[in-house]
Amino acid sequence: MKSLVAPNPGTVDEARRPERTETDTAAARRTPGAGGPLASFARFVLLGGSVGVASSASVAVLAGLMPWAAANALITVATTLLGTELHARFTFGTGRAGWRQHWQSAGSATAAYAVTSAAVFVLHLVRPSAATLYEQAVYLGAAGLAGVGRFLLLRLFVFAGGRARPTKRGTGLAPTRRAGTQVSALFPVPAV
């Protein structure tokens, strides 16, 4: 039986689509954000640091309108959503973040929130009238330390599955050839 969709073996269409090796397939799946741990960490620091500096300024502004812990919580939620998308796309190269990644990232962000809040709370215990500059230095230092832990969690657990996920149909990869069968784009058909 012949496939109505796939070209016959040896035709010009098949010659234009060479078989790809496992290495080629893995490279095709990878987006520009994928890479080794050092490259990922550099992108994590650049993106996370930028979001962190922006969140630090935002917390300082909102702390004038509400309690510091509430301002930190509000900014943490907003920056976690933004950061998770940025890290999924550019840091770890997995494309858009799904609900699972957002929830797992929220768990690590909750730990980071606890670390930054505890650090500023201790500062206020030691220096009740600490200037905003001291607050910002403590906040950013604690956020940096928490960020290293977040990087490890995100790389090893949250986005680890995205790098090894098999490709989906329609990626432009050549169909697989097995002995005795011809694989079409829509369904397998026995070869004659």
Rank of each mutant, 00 (worst) to 15 (best):
M1S: 15
L4Q: 08
A6C: 03
P7M: 05
G10A: 07
V12A: 08
D13K: 08
E14A: 12
T23A: 15
A39H: 04
R43H: 05
F44V: 08
S50Q: 01
A54N: 07
S56H: 03
S56I: 00
A69R: 06
A71D: 14
G83S: 14
F92R: 01
G93C: 03
T94A: 07
G95S: 11
A97S: 12
W99H: 08
Q101H: 03
Q101F: 01
H102K: 02
Q104M: 13
G107V: 11
S108T: 09
S108N: 02
S108W: 03
T110F: 06
A111D: 03
V115L: 14
S117P: 04
A118F: 13
F121Q: 06
L123T: 04
R127C: 08
A131D: 14
L133A: 15
G141M: 05
L145F: 14
L145R: 03
G149P: 05
F151I: 08
L152G: 12
L153T: 11
R155T: 04
R155Y: 06
F157P: 00
F157D: 09
V158L: 11
G161Q: 05
R163L: 12
G172P: 02
A174H: 04
A174V: 05
A179S: 09
G180F: 13
T181C: 11
T181Y: 04
Q182M: 10
S184N: 07
A185R: 10
A185D: 14
L186S: 06
P188D: 14
V189G: 10
